[in-house]
């Protein structure tokens, strides 16, 4: 639908395409073969797993599905996942905007190093990310001992899960914003300043609206990862049922209890979240093209 709209509004785009010389187009057979190959690949690797989750989730009927999701353990896992995301996402939102601003709007020595540092958690294996916090807050570390003496729990409790999740998802907002900000440049901001706006006024009236779609997508991606993180959380969780198991960990537990349908039922919630993420992204892209 948006595709057709686009064409309708700008017929110029389609004309040269249909009027292209034969040299600039593949023969129909090659074209079909290429499309076929691409679709086959995507079908095998993307569509099939997606379908499998839902097929397996409903394999034992709606009753099992509903029971799996209303189980107290499942509800506790869903709650923990929501709480974690509700803490992590706003924090990383603020960090992401600040980080993108500091890297994209200024030039100075060490800017590339800083960009790499911002990206770093993205390349750290999730397992290692979890390990970091065990090394820092574990009962055998100095800090961990001090915390234990003061009866503060970090790992194997909510704070540890939040920290590990925040670490893993830290770069998402900044990654979306940096290229956007650099591409957009600072001319409007400079104009606003010349007209006498204060720094905050400029940021609120000019910069935020300019970056809002990129920001939204960054937040959505950050949220999806925060809710879905497995490796890092698995290391710091302690797997206490109904207390420190997030949804992905609950999926693993069910999977190991011969409750395959229930495991896939919880997985299907996470998959729905992924689908919503994709829809938001499509809307964002469409709005930016407008």
């Amino acid at each position: 639908m948006p595709d057709r709209l686009l064409r309708f509004r700008r017929p110029a785009v389609t004309v040269p395409e249909s009027g292209r010389s034969r040299h600039l187009d593949e023969p129909p057979l090659v074209r079909a073969a290429l499309i076929g190959a691409a679709l086959l690949f995507l079908g095998l690797f993307l569509v099939l797993p997606l379908v499998t989750v839902f097929v397996e989730a409903f394999a034992k009927g709606l009753g099992t599905y509903a029971a799996a999701l209303s189980d107290p353990m499942a509800r506790a896992a869903i709650r923990l996942t929501l709480v974690t995301a509700a803490i992590v996402v706003p924090v990383n939102l603020v960090f992401g905007v600040a980080a993108a601003w500091s890297v994209a709007k200024f030039d100075y020595r060490g800017r590339h190093l800083l960009t790499t540092l911002i990206d770093l958690p993205f390349s750290v294996s999730p397992v290692v990310s979890g390990l970091l916090f065990v090394l820092l807050f574990g009962a055998n570390a100095a800090l961990g001992r001090w915390l234990a003496d003061h009866d503060l729990k970090v790992i194997f409790a909510l704070p540890g899960i939040v920290l590990a999740t925040a670490f893993v998802t830290a770069p998402f907002v900044a990654r979306e914003l940096i290229p956007l900000m650099r591409a957009q440049g600072s001319d409007e901001e400079l104009a606003a300043l010349t007209l006498g706006a204060s720094g905050w006024q400029m940021f609120r009236r000019i910069s935020l609206p300019k970056m809002k779609w990129g920001l939204l997508f960054g937040v959505v991606l950050c949220n999806a990862r925060a809710m879905g993180e497995f490796g890092a959380v698995s290391v710091v969780s302690g797997h206490i049922r109904g207390e420190t198991t997030t949804m992905p960990l609950h999926v693993e537990i069910l999977y190991n209890e011969y409750q395959l349908a229930a495991a896939f039922a919880v997985a299907s919630l996470l998959t729905l979240l992924a689908v919503v993420t994709l829809v938001v992204k499509a809307v964002v892209e469409w709005r930016t093209h407008e």
């Binding site: 995507l42 997606l50 879905g228 998959t271 992924a274 993420t277 994709l278």
Partner: peptide, 13 residues
Amino acid sequence: GLVDLPFALPTAV
């Protein structure tokens, strides 16, 4: 739109 699925889908799933 579907191409981004692996970014959004939890790895355990």
